[in-house]
Nucleic acid binder design. Sequence first.
DNA 1: GCTACTGTTTCCGGTATGGAAACTCCGTCC
DNA 2: GGACGGAGTTTCCATACCGGAAACAGTAGC
Lengths: 100, 100
Amino acid sequence: MPPEAPAFDEVIHAPQRLRICAALSAAHKVEFGFLQERLGLSKSALSKHLSHLADAGYVSQDRAVRDARSRLWLSLTPEGRRAYASHVRALQEIVGSTDG
Amino acid sequence: MPPEAPAFDEVIHAPQRLRICAALSAAHKVEFGFLQERLGLSKSALSKHLSHLADAGYVSQDRAVRDARSRLWLSLTPEGRRAYASHVRALQEIVGSTDG
DNA sequence: GCTACTGTTTCCGGTATGGAAACTCCGTCC
DNA sequence: GGACGGAGTTTCCATACCGGAAACAGTAGC
């Protein structure tokens, strides 16, 4: 199966969501609190970004108990992985030969 | 001189401005009309984005006559090139090992 | 001066963004 | 079971961004 054409995705492109997707793409699951601390976001801001990504079908949520507390675990859906990879390709296409 | 640390730049990151910077980085000078057609932007939108970049010191403007018309030529300032390259590095750092 | 073309600025409506605070849920503990 | 506290969510609000349309300004040529 050939890779689909790069597609610039405004939902993913927003700075914080790009970071969120990058973090999620590097792992199977990531805890809400870990993301929050890593990105330096408030709970409400992170929650809103995650809702945004979930509405797009890019992120799925799971609850699990750790340290006697229910916690939220996030992961990219297959569609989310595709969209993220596609967006990264779109970025690479835009910056082209730019020598970072 | 070692390359400066990657710096994520919100001014550059906006989708259209990222494209503008990419286009400018690939050439010495680019005509307003060429940019407009290439990016599919309205005159006002492009003008505003260029003002934004110029305010940040990233873009310089030059007027020259071609075909009996005064036209605007745009180019990245040295600072603009640095900031753009730095932003691209920041993006690469974020997406990390993502296989585009 | 008048016209035509190149950009710029203003006006306006729609939307994104983020912090603070109120609120919901749920597991723990007594 | 009821109180407590942590984990996220939603609401409220204020700010900023964004883009189209239209009015405006500057310049070249007649």
